[in-house]
């Protein structure tokens, strides 16, 4: 399997001109959707996240990369309310959401997926989808007993769910338990379910992890579609090929800090990024790094084409 399979079916249109001034950690954005300040989270003696300032551009696809243990997922958890920072302030769409519980964050239109896919196994695929819809009156205990309060709404939700399932090519599976899907199909289902809530910001935690190459392409297309439909995407990813192909902006984290930001092709040449990656064992696409690095790195880069499918 060659790495070219991971290329989206059409050449993605990159969004540029997102930042103001020189790309550097914490650079100002023209139109940020998330602005975070002084976010710090430590577990015992370990400082997992220590971000001074970070802005996520609206209407673009931003990749959050970094070696293992850089604090990417922890930052995700903090921004979505799944974890509470020691200190820090952040806003979403101009409103502070620091300390707001996860479910309220999701209701405001900032929806996330998980690194370890959370398909609701013993619910059918269609039920998984319907669960994603926001503001259902049938979800209130008192109205739930009387179907005439919510039957019409349920039909609309079902139509929307079927439409999305068809786009994600899961419509044939709608009556199966989600547990019977393959790993890649579960990723698709999780993404489709997130879209049921009509979000403005979609946060994907390693959308490609464990997805077979045949499904990678369709996942990439779906992520690009989100941008076309006006949503903002922030994703954590290890697959450098994917990052370079679809990301408009890249934020690099190492040891809890943002060490670099910039255009995906430029940022990989940043010495701070090279420092961050070379110290750790990793399956990154080293071929994109600065050519002045050692022979050993070039050898690694040659092997990389085989490894990229992970």
């Amino acid at each position: 399997m060659s790495s070219n399979d991971a290329v989206p079916s059409s050449t993605p249109t990159k969004t540029s001109g997102l930042h103001i001034g020189e790309p550097a950690p914490g650079v100002k954005k023209v139109d940020p959707i998330i602005v975070a300040d002084h976010i710090k989270r430590s577990f015992g003696g370990l400082t997992a996240v220590d971000v001074e300032h970070l802005e996520i551009p609206r209407g673009a696809i931003t990749a959050l990369i970094g070696p293992n243990g850089a604090g990417k997922t922890t930052l995700f958890n903090l921004l979505t309310g799944f974890d509470k920072p020691d200190t820090g302030e952040w806003t979403f769409d101009g409103n502070s959401i620091a300390g707001v519980p996860a479910f309220k964050v999701a209701r405001r239109g900032q929806v996330r997926t998980f690194q370890l896919t959370k398909a609701l196994g013993l619910l059918t695929v269609l039920d998984n989808m319907k669960l994603g819809a926001k503001g259902q009156s049938g979800e209130s205990l008192t109205k739930a007993i009387f179907p005439w309060f919510w039957r019409k709404e349920e039909e609309e939700i079902e139509a929307r769910a079927l439409d999305l399932l068809a786009r994600f090519k899961l419509d044939a599976k709608k009556d199966d338990y989600a547990a019977s899907l393959s790993g890649g199909q579960r990723k698709l289902l999780e993404m489709a379910r997130a879209l049921m809530s009509e979000p403005t910001l979609v946060m994907l935690d390693e959308p490609m992890a464990g997805v077979n190459p045949a499904l990678t392409q369709s996942l990439l297309d779906h992520i690009l579609n989100l941008k076309t439909e006006g949503m903002t995407v922030l994703f954590v990813e290890h697959d450098m090929h994917m990052v370079r192909h679809i990301a408009d902006w890249v934020v690099v984290m190492a040891e809890g800090k943002v060490v670099a930001e910039g255009d995906p092709h430029e940022v990989m040449k940043n010495p701070a990024v090279i420092d961050a990656y070379l110290g750790s064992h990793h399956d990154e696409d080293l071929g994109e790094l600065d050519p002045s690095i050692t022979e050993a790195v070039k050898e690694l880069a040659d092997d990389d084409a085989d490894e990229i499918k992970h």
Partner: peptide
């Protein structure tokens, strides 16, 4: 009902249900 769907979702994985905006 949709209420039961949320309840069963919580049984399967409450974080996933939380991420979809349910209390």
């Amino acid at each position: 009902s949709p209420w039961g769907r949320v309840i069963k979702g919580i049984r399967e994985d409450e974080d996933a249900v939380r991420a979809l905006g349910k209390n």
